[in-house]
Amino acid sequence: MILFIVLAVVSIAAAVGVIAAQNPIRSAMALVLNFLVLAVIYFSLNLHLLGISQVLIYTGLIMMLFLFCILLLNLSAPQMLTEPSYLKRWAAVLVTGSLLVVLFSQIVGPWLVPVPPNNTFAGVISNAPDDFGTAKAVGNALFNHWVYGFEIASLLLLVGIVGSILVAKRRG
């Protein structure tokens, strides 16, 4: 519990750092920290394979692409963008504050009411088996029951690769 609170605070601080930093490189570094902390939270949920995937895919692949793009675009100090106006900032605070209240009351709220202690569906006691996050269990489910979704995802990635090459290499 204490470990989770520490991880959650670090994760939220990193997320705020993403949108508070002026330099995009600093935003990217804060996002890397956030992804790594989320990977640790996945490990604490017994989700080993997805924790490793989180580190490999998000902090490895996606953040590498972001940093590559930042370096190629050369967003150095002279091109730093101006801050949004105060009106826009207050509008953002208003909209997202109401979003926070609505989502909390509708999604988290039902899980806060007290429940009988032996109710495994009440969100207090895990009813998943201990090994449900291992590579064996995930691979077994993915390649037996979800194999069509897997093939569609691979097709989507192929189209994405070809499409990004087309977009990036277009001349004129």
Partner: peptide
């Protein structure tokens, strides 16, 4: 995760 990778590219 797969969709996010394609989307970022």
């Amino acid at each position: 995760m797969a969709v996010a990778a394609a989307e970022v590219a």
